[in-house]
Amino acid sequence: MRRTNDTLLISRVMLFDDRRAFATLVEQHQPTIRRFFLHQTMGDTMLSDDLAQETFIKLYYSIKQFKGLSNFSTYLYRIAYNVFQDHLRRNKITEDADAIPEQSMSHNNDVAMDINKALQHLSQPERIAVTLYYIEDRKVDDIAQILQLPTGTIKSHLSRARTKLAKFLKNNGYE
């Protein structure tokens, strides 16, 4: 149902440059895209919202390239992933554990610290794979399409990440 609705909205944007249809698409998909960025930026709400906005603007310019071969949300995550890569390149963010940005206001600080500490044990591709697999509930094939990597690579990212996270959680009394 959601897929049909998306297809209809995309057609309206493609054919008639229908801004209302595009606003509906943004409204429907913004919570998941903002949440995706929250996990990549360690809970930086402002930065996540900026990156999510950039994602939707890129979507507007590239919507005619969407052929409907994959799920629309997979296409949108692919754009979000590219936006995040561009952001990393622009800001040359290292995976330094000491630069923890402002926490999301919706989170209890201890909880946020825990999830941040846990995610900081992962490399950037591992973090993206884990976010998409465990939090956004995407299939390995979808993640492979989003990251443009072979499914085997995604599986090994997930396996390594799972081992690191489990070790961290056990060491912190989460068993």
Partner: peptide, 27 residues
């Protein structure tokens, strides 16, 4: 263990009623 931890402690994007409005303004 990992699944339970991540699903329980995942961030949730706080409601932002201006998000769509601001995005549409940048088009």
């Amino acid at each position: 263990l990992v699944k339970q931890f991540l699903q329980k402690q995942a961030y949730e994007a706080k409601d932002n009623p201006w998000f769509t409005h601001r995005t549409m303004h940048r088009l």
